[in-house]
Write a protein that binds this DNA or RNA. Sequence first.
DNA 1: ATGCATGAGAG
DNA 2: TCTCATGCATA
Length: 244
Amino acid sequence: MFQMHGMENLDLMGDPSGSMTTLTPMSETPITSSHHQLHGSYHSMNHMMSHHHHGGPLSGHTPGSHHSAMAAAVAAASLHPDQDTDPRELEAFAERFKQRRIKLGVTQADVGKALANLKLPGVGALSQSTICRFESLTLSHNNMIALKPILQAWLEEAEAQAKNKRRDPDAPSVLPHGEKKRKRTSIAAPEKRSLEAYFAVQPRPSGEKIAAIAEKLDLKKNVVRVWFCNQRQKQKRMKFAAQH
DNA sequence: ATGCATGAGAG
DNA sequence: TCTCATGCATA
């Protein structure tokens, strides 16, 4: 149970040129998102709607002069860096968040949608995936820090309204019909094991190595490239980060 | 809950 | 090309 699949005699591991590539210590300002999109009609809408995160509105300054409710959140985030960037604090908050969210009878998807209603500058809706990942700490440290004040703002708002026993029967979504759906490639277990073996010795293979691996495993080069990218991202997620 | 994918931004 | 934030699709 340890088959080194397609690693036979392919010199994919040797790296004479010492291509250690970058070791970026996160020099940018990856704060949060700004995108609104509900359901995917990924047909012709796929390259125009998508997302548009990064360098988001929360990246350091408030465009224009529109601080309001978020000013508090932003202030909190910058006035107590220690507390807000502390992995344990994040972990504690994530747990509290989830518990209170459930107490309110709100789903992860609901929270994501509700964020858009908070009208915080540059803060739109988020997906169920992201809320789930926040709660389970499976986001990067920076991402957790960026999302915390936003989710905290939502939580406070939601609990305030819960007291007033507010209820809003929102209209169920009407899924746009018959649009092409994105298909998810599934990498078979044997191939995945090989990829993991390669990754263990070379997490950042060059384009040529990727091509070689792809051919060996009979996978699209892009699939292999993306697999490595996602694998690297995984390594950086809080859960496995040796920070706590 | 998580696998594979997209796209903006930065080299 | 890579990273990073994020999401659709699916198990």
